[in-house]
């Protein structure tokens, strides 16, 4: 039994929906956490070992749980947040919990790339910590931040393949249920091509924006 093009479009829609909504929420959570991880570390502008040493292991723990386990493990929490534990929207909750800490780490790495001399210059100018974050730290590492978000987006696409386990649908689910379980080679090939194009497109877009901002 072959899949219809309608099913493919439906699956593509579900993937794009899950990825984009999860990305927005994961960024809203991950970006501030990543900033916190940088500015609260020793010797930085808002040094605070309590926050840093509380945050750091929590992010590590969340990062080390395999997504398929996390997906199932937090079902009660998912139900609490979106009222159901089945379906595309329900898949978004674990996707956010999975990707948020990942983005935090990526953001942390990007922000650490800044030349410490820039921060010193900012402090010498009498900039407040918020000014340092928004006028120096983020603008100077924006190119790298965009690449980080690009990497996170591609990671999300991979994770959505497992969303089928909670009835989330999407391209990955299509590949498993029709392609793998029903031996439809054409479905496998088609879904892989779609995913490759999607990933390639997102990476290229990220690269273009990053290059534009980095000015070289």
């Amino acid at each position: 039994m072959e899949v219809s093009s309608e099913q493919v479009f439906q699956a593509l829609y579900e993937t794009v929906y899950m990825v984009s909504v999860s990305l927005v929420f994961a960024t809203v959570i991950g970006l501030p956490l990543g900033i916190l991880l940088v500015v609260t570390r020793k010797g930085h502008i808002l040094e605070n070992s309590a926050i840093f040493s509380a945050l750091n292991p929590v992010i590590n723990v969340l990062r080390s749980v395999p997504f398929i386990i996390l997906l199932v493990a937090i079902i009660p929490f998912t139900r609490l947040v979106v009222g159901t534990s089945i379906g595309t929207t329900a898949a978004i909750v674990p996707l956010v919990i999975y990707t948020g800490p990942y983005i935090a780490r990526l953001v942390e790495n990007s922000l650490l790339e800044i030349n410490p001399g820039i921060i010193e210059a900012a402090e010498a100018m009498g900039a407040t910590p918020l000014q340092i974050i928004f006028r120096f730290l983020i603008p100077e590492t924006l190119g790298s931040l965009i690449l980080s978000i690009t990497t996170a987006t591609i990671g999300l696409i991979g994770a959505t393949a497992m969303a089928g386990a909670v009835g989330g649908g999407g391209i990955g689910d299509l590949a498993i249920t029709y392609g793998y379980q029903r031996f439809s080679t054409i479905t496998i090939v088609a879904t892989v091509i779609i995913l490759v194009v999607l990933v390639q497109g997102i990476q290229s877009l990220g690269n273009v924006f990053a290059r534009k901002i980095r000015r070289n």
């Binding site: 030349n115 001399g117 820039i118 210059a121 603008p139 100077e140």
Partner: peptide, 11 residues
Amino acid sequence: MIFQQFNLLET
């Protein structure tokens, strides 16, 4: 204050 490595904002 001025610096050996200038510390200008590259962007």
